[in-house]
Design a protein around this nucleic acid. Structure first.
Lengths: 335, 335
DNA sequence: CTGAAAGCGCTTACAG
DNA sequence: CTGAAAGCGCTTACAG
C-alpha cells in the first residue's frame, strides 16, 4: 500500500505539502503541486480515509437502523437517505434489527464505536430505552416512526389529514356507510391520528354511520382471515378505509373470495401506496406517502444538524397524495 | 470524548493494560482487570473503532454496489449480505449506482479509500472497465450478475436447469405448444442459458413447436405492450415461459385485458418469484431464486476469502425452486 | 503480568 | 509557500 509518505519521498517534498495538494487546503506553488500530482498519478495513491477520519474526527458515516429491508417502504426510505447522504459525501451503515430491541441496542453501541456522525432510526415503534440510548449517544438523530414520542426529532406525514381527505373522497363519491379497519388494539400515536381523521370526516359530513374494526395485526394474512369473518356476518358498509395497504389487500382478497365484489359491493382504500397496489385486481386506491422523500428530507435535516446549522426540532411533516385507482366505486350517478 | 488514556489514568495503569483487558488479548491479573473494568463501566468508555482500524488495518467494512434498492430482489440480496456480515462482525457500505458506470467507478474508488475489505457487486451486467477496476483494487470480490464473464468470481443459480425444469413441468401438464418470451435481443449469458434450457426441454420431449419472442425490454410496461401485439395476432401456443416475472406479469395483464383468459386459454410462468407473484390474479407460477441466500452465501464466500481460507473460485451455484400457483392450467385430464 | 515506546496514515498549528 | 513536529486513539512488539 502506498502512503502519503511514499508520495512525499518520491516527489521530494514534505508530507505536509502532499496533504495540502490532495486537500487543496493551503496554497502550494504550481510547480510543486504539479510534481506531487504527477507522483500521485503514477503511483495511483489514494488517501486512507481511516487515518484521515482519526485526525479530523469526521467519519462521514450515518448509522441507519431499520427493521427489515424486505418491506418496500423501508427500502424506499433507505434509498432517499443514501442518495442525499452521498450528495454530501456521507455513507450509510445499514443495520437491520428485525424489530428486536436487543439488536437495536447492539447496533446503537456499534454505531457509536464506529464514530457514526448521525443516526436515522426507522421503525413502527421504539422502546423508550432505545430512544434514551440514542439520545445519550449525543449525536444528531432523526426518527421515522408510527409512534411518536415528544422527546424525538421525527419526520412524518400528516396521517390525520390523509385519512380525513380519503374518507371525504369516499363520501363525495356517495358513500354513506364507511367503516375503518385498524391494525392493533394497542394503538400507536399515528393510528390514533388516522382514526381521529376518519371520525372527523364522518362528523364533518353529518353521516350517522361509523364503525372501527380491529384486525389485531397489520399483516395481510391476518387481515384476510379477519375479512372472511366480517364477510360472513351481516356487513352494512359500502366502503372501508384501511389503516394500511397490507390490511386493505388482505381484506380485498377475503371479500373477493367470499363472493363480495370489490368495488361493486364494497369499495376499499388503503394507506401507504405500496407497489402491490398496482398489481392487485382491482388496483387499490391508496394514500401515497412519499417514502423516498421521507428518507431524503430526514437526511437533509440530519446533515444540517451535523453541520451545526440550526434546524427545526421535533416534527417535520411531509405531504401525502391520494392515488385514485379502481377499488372505489362512485355511487353518485346511480339512481 | 473519553479515551483509552483517560481510562488508563483513572485506573492507574498503562494504556497497554487497558487495551489488553478490552481486547482480552493478553493475560491481565484479576485485580487489575477488575479495576479497569470498573472504570470503563463508570466512564462509559467505548473504544474508537476508527483508531483501532488504523493500527490493525482491519476496517470490517464490505462495500456493496447495487443498482437500485427499489427492486425487491436486490433488497433481499442485501439482507442476506448484511445478516451474514453482521454475524462475522462486518458492516456493509451500501452504494446504489442506478446502473451508471461512472457512479460504479466512483464508488469503487470511494470504497477503496474507506479501506473496505471486500466488494460485493450486484447487477444485471457490468462493464469490463468496472470488472477490471474492481480487480485492480486487489480486494476479495464477488459478483451476482446476469452476464457472467470468466474473469469474475460469481454466485448464481443454474438458470438453464431452472427453465428446463419449468418447461418440463408445463409439458407434463399436457402443453405441447410452449413459447418462450425473452427480454432483449442483445442477450446476457444468463439469458442464453435460459433459452438453451427451454430448447432442450422442447427437444428432450420430442415436441415440434418452439418459438422465442423478444420483448426488447425486461420491464413490465413494455411487456404489456408487447403482449397486446401478440394477443392480436394469431397465437398458437397454450403456454408461455417468460424470462422474468416482470415480463410474465406484463404479458398476463395484456392477455387478460385482451380477453384471453389466463390460465384457461394460455398458461404463463415467470422467473424470479418476486413478491408481486402472489398479488396478481391469477397468482403467478414462477421459479424461485433464493435471493436472500445469494447474498448470504456470497457473503460467506467473501468473508472466507478475506480470512485467507481457500475458497472455490469462479462459479458458485444455488438451487432454485418451482413455485406452483394458478397461472398454469393442466391439460392432462381434459378429453 | 505490566509499561514505555513506536507506529498506523493522516492533518494542522507553528515557525520560518 | 514549505517543512518539522505533534497528535488523533488505538495496538503490539519489546523489555522487564
Amino acid at each position: 500500500m502506498i502512503t502519503i509518505k511514499d508520495v512525499a519521498r518520491l516527489a521530494e517534498v514534505s508530507i505536509s505539502t502532499v496533504s495540502r495538494v490532495i486537500n487543496d487546503s493551503k496554497p502550494v506553488s504550481p510547480e510543486v503541486r504539479r510534481k506531487v500530482l504527477k507522483i500521485i498519478e503514477e503511483t495511483g495513491y489514494k488517501p486512507n480515509d481511516v487515518a484521515r477520519s482519526l485526525v479530523t474526527r469526521r467519519s462521514y458515516l450515518i448509522g441507519v437502523i431499520i427493521n427489515n429491508l424486505a418491506q418496500s417502504y423501508v427500502a424506499d426510505i433507505v434509498r432517499g437517505i443514501e442518495e442525499i447522504g452521498k450528495m454530501y459525501g456521507y455513507d450509510i451503515l445499514l443495520c437491520s434489527s428485525y424489530s428486536s430491541k436487543e439488536t437495536q441496542e447492539k447496533y446503537l453501541q456499534l454505531l457509536d464505536r464506529k464514530q457514526a456522525e448521525g443516526l436515522f432510526l426507522v421503525g413502527t415503534r421504539f422502546d423508550d430505552d432505545i430512544i434514551d440510548l440514542a439520545k445519550s449517544l449525543n449525536k444528531p438523530c432523526v426518527f421515522f416512526t408510527r409512534d411518536v414520542k415528544e422527546k424525538m426529532n421525527y419526520i412524518s406525514i400528516d396521517c390525520n389529514s390523509a385519512i380525513y381527505e380519503i374518507t371525504k373522497y369516499l363520501i363525495k363519491e356517495g358513500h354513506k356507510k364507511i367503516a375503518f379497519i385498524s391494525d392493533f388494539e394497542n394503538r400507536t400515536t399515528i393510528e390514533n391520528d388516522k382514526i381521529a381523521g376518519y371520525m372527523k370526516a364522518i362528523e364533518d359530513n353529518g353521516l350517522d354511520y361509523s364503525h372501527v374494526y380491529v384486525v389485531g395485526s397489520g399483516k395481510q394474512r391476518r387481515a384476510y382471515d379477519f375479512g372472511l369473518s366480517i364477510a360472513n356476518e351481516h356487513k352494512d358498509f359500502t366502503a372501508v378505509v384501511c389503516s394500511n395497504d397490507e390490511i386493505a389487500i388482505g381484506i380485498m382478497n377475503s371479500f373477493t373470495d367470499s363472493g363480495i365484489n370489490v368495488p361493486d359491493d364494497v369499495s376499499i382504500v388503503g394507506f401507504g401506496n405500496i407497489r402491490e397496489c398496482r398489481f392487485v385486481r382491482p388496483e387499490l386506491t391508496s394514500i401515497g406517502e412519499p417514502y423516498y422523500d421521507v428518507g431524503a428530507v430526514g437526511m437533509r435535516m440530519l446533515i444540517k444538524t451535523i453541520k451545526g446549522d440550526k434546524t427545526q426540532k421535533g416534527l417535520m411533516e411531509l405531504p401525502f397524495t391520494i392515488e385514485k385507482r379502481n377499488s372505489v366505486k362512485s355511487l353518485v350517478n346511480e339512481n
